[in-house]
Amino acid sequence: MKSVELTINGKAVSRKVEPRQLLVDFLREDMRLTGTHVGCDTSQCGACVVHVDGKPVKSCTALVVQLDGADVKTIESLAADGEELHPMQEAFRQNHGLQCGFCTPGMVMSALGLLDQNPDPSETEIREWLEGNICRCTGYHNIVKSIQAAATTMAATNK
């Protein structure tokens, strides 16, 4: 077992973990943060996307031990008080950007990674960015619309 210290959704966490434990399993099983999903488990579908030190990564393809000292943010960090949705979540809701919802946490975290880097992306840039996030329900149109809407709101409210 190896000792790790991480910040998860703003909270300092220290644990002993097996070197082979994946970040996504640590989040879901040890931290009980089950908003992050395991879809394909082969780093293709993007349901497991979380932010590590501000950047979106696939948590099914990272070991917890690699991330000792890192700052991890999951979907649960966005509407932390459970009342007001983050503008990105609200945009998915308003634009019907989800059907079954399985891919949504990863979509939202990926989309926020895009806006961090490019606050005003074109439709093409959004679609290219979503290469690593697979949705089998929506056909992506409403997801793209949601991200465009969120970009507008977030630019206006500076969030």
């Binding site: 590590v52 979106p56 990564v57 696939k58 990674g113 895009l114 690593g132």
Partner: peptide, 9 residues
Amino acid sequence: IGDPQVRNR
């Protein structure tokens, strides 16, 4: 290469 998340690692 790959997708944005893969490019970050």
